[in-house]
Simulated scan of single mutants.
Amino acid sequence: MKGTILKFGTNVTIITAIFVSGFVVGAENKTVSEEIEYLTRNDPLAAISRYEEVAQTLLKQNNPDTILIYKNVLIAASNTQNIPLVEEMSKQLSSLRLAAYINPYLFSSVNAIGVSYRKNGQFEDAVTTYKCALKYAFNDIDKMIVKVNLSIAYRMMEQPAVSFQLLQSIDEAILDGNRKAGLLVVKGNTAVVLNKSSEAVDYYAQARKYYLKVEHNLSAARVTVNLLGAALISRKLDVFTKYRITLNQFPENQLPLGEKQYLQWLDLMYKSVAKNNISLDTERYIKEQVPVLIEFGYKEHIVKLLQSLDAQSLVPEGGKRFLPTTKLKPGLASQWCQNF
């Protein structure tokens, strides 16, 4: 028996892991697979730590639970930019010892690898991998997930028309609240690129309602930040004020760093939009902050807002999102995607 202390903010949780007949069982009879899945969604670094505790045991454990653990650790590694671990999990998922169990998990595994490429700025590799994932899509929901992911990748590759066409081909009637919210966020992001910021405000507002309905408060707060940007671009200052107040009820320290910095920038830009003029102090601040915000993925919103103020010259030359210094190896899903 092994006791592990995991920290969540200021709280400390003690988890006891027991090994029985090759299966790893966690606190309250939960499998380690279930623990890691939860941690991947809420604390990816803790998920990786939990995996490291059982990594050697998993090498001798050949079953569906092992696949689920590797897939979730891959996602956690992607979210924390742990390139070596993404590659290691891809290798383990494609290992011969798990071949008898992988088929039901091929879609989610290949799709997760595609997301890893996209999050690492390797958009062409992401598109190739997503197209392969489509081959393993078992139902309309899987196909929808691929289309949304392809749409994001094409938008990041500055092909918004292709992105929009993919989104329009999705049957929203099959989606539940959470998935529909995610689709609406992507539609909003694409609408901004296509100079339809007023429509983007509506998409984001709808997404926010769906997230709040299923009590995904963090997601609701994050999409509210995007909504505020679209509101400024479309000069809807009353909408900005209305939704900015709602964020005062949300602990700002729970927002990811990118959203926090973008929100601070929007608060400053609100004054410039209201006056339709950028002061010299604000101009200096923009020059300092815009490169950072572009790296966080806000290029389209920033460019459109500065263009609306006739200040596009403040965008760094090229205005490109910075590419990672360390790239993932190509073909991480080649075991299942030989023809892609």
Rank of each mutant, 00 (worst) to 15 (best):
Y117M: 07
K213Q: 15
K299Q: 10
S21C: 02
A181H: 12
P330H: 11
A27Y: 00
A76S: 11
K2N: 14
E158G: 02
A17P: 00
L228H: 01
G297R: 03
A200P: 07
V32D: 08
K135M: 08
Q264T: 15
R235D: 04
E53G: 13
L328H: 09
A207R: 01
I5W: 02
N248Y: 08
F19P: 03
K329V: 09
R97Q: 11
L59A: 15
N253K: 12
M156E: 15
S334V: 09
I48K: 05
I294T: 05
R222K: 15
N29M: 03
V25G: 00
D238Q: 05
N29R: 13
I145A: 04
V201Q: 05
Q81M: 11
V193L: 00
Q122V: 07
K143Y: 02
M157G: 00
T246E: 08
N42C: 00
L96P: 02
I102K: 00
F164W: 11
I15Y: 01
M156D: 13
I141H: 06
K143R: 14
K213W: 14
W336F: 12
L227D: 02
L175M: 10
S108Y: 05
L255W: 06
Y101F: 15
N42A: 10
F340P: 00
V12Y: 02
A333L: 07
L59S: 14
D267Q: 09
N111L: 09
P316I: 09
A161T: 14
Y38K: 15
S33G: 09
Y101V: 07
D171L: 07
L68K: 08
N178C: 03
I145C: 02
D267R: 06
F19E: 14
Q289Y: 08
S197F: 05
P316F: 09
I102T: 14
I18E: 12
C132F: 01
V214I: 15
F164K: 13
A17Q: 04
S234L: 10
Y285V: 01
T224A: 07
D281T: 08
D142F: 01
Y105Q: 06
P251D: 07
L39D: 00
I294Q: 04
P316E: 07
G22E: 03
R321D: 04
E124F: 09
A200M: 06
Y154N: 06
K7C: 05
L263F: 07
A17Y: 06
L255N: 02
E53R: 10
L45Y: 10
K242Y: 11
S163C: 02
G318I: 12
L134A: 06
N277W: 06
S234D: 10
F19R: 05
T246Q: 12
K287W: 03
Y101A: 10
E288Q: 13
L68M: 07
T282A: 12
K147L: 10
K304R: 15
V185Q: 12
V185G: 09
G22V: 03
S197A: 15
D171P: 08
S234T: 06
R244G: 05
N195T: 13
V162C: 00
R222C: 09
I170C: 01
I294V: 12
S108E: 15
L247V: 13
